[in-house]
Amino acid sequence: MIGDSASFLAVGAALFILGGIGFVTRRNLILIFLSAELMLHGVSLTLLTFGRVHRNLEGQAFTIFILTVAACEAALGLSLILALYQHSKSLDVDLWSKLREADLPAPLLALDAGEPPLETAPSPAPLPRLAPAGLPPIIDDDFPAELAATVDARTIITPSPPDDGEYR
């Protein structure tokens, strides 16, 4: 069926898998992005091979769109990384694991038996928090009503709740 194209497909699969393993195991934000680009290479190679097997140009046209989306992804991802870096002064992805939902477990930092836990950087200054998804916000009943009528609600600054401290 696919004849001598099987080895091209195998190289594409290996590139995809290697990119995936880099995506899961690396802890540097930039290298996680690079691994995603490696996965895209594997997919492009597979698409081109199948296009040649079927003797048409759909694979090449798809790969051009992959290239376009990869360029967009790199631009947006790198500007996001710079914004995150400016807040925490570190490229460690574990610093941002608090962005998960409140009811999800903490990320795995050492799954392999006998290995010491991974060291983490000191947490950056806590960000202001939203109410957890699915929970009603806590409404301060003591806030005087006549004051609330005169004050713009957006200017009232409430302190962020105390850190749960599980991840220092």
């Binding site: 899961v24 802890r27 570190s90 992805v93 795995l108 799954l111 991974l118 950087a121």
Partner: peptide, 9 residues
Amino acid sequence: TFYDQRART
């Protein structure tokens, strides 16, 4: 950097 030295899981 220390976070490049160890892989996660």
